[in-house]
Amino acid sequence: MRKILIVDDQVEVRDLVEVTLRGDEVQILQAASGEEALSVVRSEKPELVLMDVMMPGRLDGLEATRAIKSDPETCGCTVILLTAKGQEADRRRGLEAGAEAYFTKPFSPLALIECIESHLD
């Protein structure tokens, strides 16, 4: 069973992604902050992380992505940034932090599924 982690400080967005991806062959994990995301990535080793960029707390999405990508234990995990910051500079910063893709809110759940499928396999 595939594990996908969704990180967002807003419960609605986590629920939205969860219901979008829900299925027999996938297990959805949730985290509400960058810190929580790091600990889930280390313990659960998900295949893919959908990461919000702007989150309150010590680690925002970019810093959490850098931490995941710089740890040899977790760097194999695919990170897709999911954010309402849609400017070109934001996108560049996201990819520089090591994320594989950048997905802008608001989004179509079907388009999100396509994006995730293209990055798994």
């Binding site: 807003q10 609605e12 967005v13 939205l16 219901v19 979008t20 702007m54 309402a84 910051k85 849609g86 400017q87 802008t104 809110k105 608001p106 989004f107 179509s108 759940p109 079907l110």
Partner: peptide, 24 residues
């Protein structure tokens, strides 16, 4: 850019959940 971000955040739920309700 901040205002756009703030407007997109609620829109994410509105667009996402309406699509979920229409397709699932």
């Amino acid at each position: 850019s901040t205002a756009a971000h703030e407007l997109r955040t609620p829109l994410t739920s509105i667009q996402g959940f309406t699509e979920v309700l229409m397709t699932r």
